[in-house]
């Protein structure tokens, strides 16, 4: 089902269950999820609100650990990693794109993009090169001294994407990246993600409500009541097969 020129396996989700405990109540959110993604895959996760999309994404991104089952991403078994190990692993392998952009308001676009690089051993010069390159990919070199409040929503999200790719991670996770944007800006963001997938061979997992957005992915998965109910190969993937 995955694309023909599949590379290395990046994500393995095996028999994963996730429950949340609130007071004495146990809330089962995911029950028995299986999923595999190879390098260069682009997956859209769809499903009704509250179906567990964000929860699954968080597990794949190493923000949370499964109650049962294995999540192995970029060779690391995330369920068996400590908090500290997960932090280090995330900084190396994952780029985050959030619905509300989550830029740091007191830092300029440049400084926001530079932030993940302060966790690396790169020199100031090298960081500068990386930041400028990332801002160029998203087309915002001329806005690097602007603060988030001086940017439009679409521009903020592009800065956030630059921040996500500046460390050159294998995996990009995006939780409703166009959920807060107008159609035009959303189109630009989707175009950018498409480029990152095809040109830079980033593996992408995107949660979305928007069928148009999902159509840009190579694969679409539907979550319902904690289960993966169907796997749809998107029109784009079908095109690429033909």
């Amino acid at each position: 089902m995955s694309n023909s020129n599949a590379g290395e396996t990046v994500v393995v989700v095996r028999e994963v269950c996730k429950e949340f405990r609130r007071d004495q109540l146990t809330i089962p959110v995911l029950s028995g999820i299986n999923l595999q993604l190879s390098e260069g895959d682009y997956l859209a996760l769809m499903g009704p609100s509250g179906s567990g999309k964000t929860t699954l994404l968080n597990l794949i991104a190493g923000l949370d650990r499964p109650t049962a089952g294995d999540v192995i991403v970029c060779g690391q078994n995330l369920g068996q990693s400590s908090e500290g190990e997960l932090a280090k692993w995330r900084s190396r392998h994952v780029g985050f794109i959030f619905q509300m952009y989550n830029l740091i308001p007191v830092l300029t676009a440049y400084e926001n993009v530079e932030l993940p690089l302060t966790l690396t051993s790169l020199s100031r010069r090298q960081r500068d090169d990386h930041v400028k390159a990332a801002l160029e990919v998203v087309g915002l070199q001329d806005r690097m001294d602007h603060y988030p409040r001086q940017l439009s929503g679409g521009q903020e999200q592009r800065v956030a994407i630059a921040r996500a790719i500046v460390t050159d991670p294998t995996l990009l996770v995006a939780d409703e990246p166009t959920g807060d944007l107008d159609a035009k800006s959303a189109g630009e963001i989707l175009e950018l993600l498409h480029r990152l997938n095809t040109e830079f061979r980033k593996t992408i997992v995107m949660v979305t409500h928007d069928p148009n957005a999902a159509a840009r992915a190579r694969r679409i998965l539907h979550l319902e009541k904690g289960l993966l109910v169907s796997e749809v190969v998107s029109s784009r993937a079908k095109e690429s097969v033909q």
Partner: peptide, 9 residues
């Protein structure tokens, strides 16, 4: 967000 980006506790 800072934690997600990988800043340790």
């Amino acid at each position: 967000t800072l934690r997600a980006l990988g800043f340790p506790q």
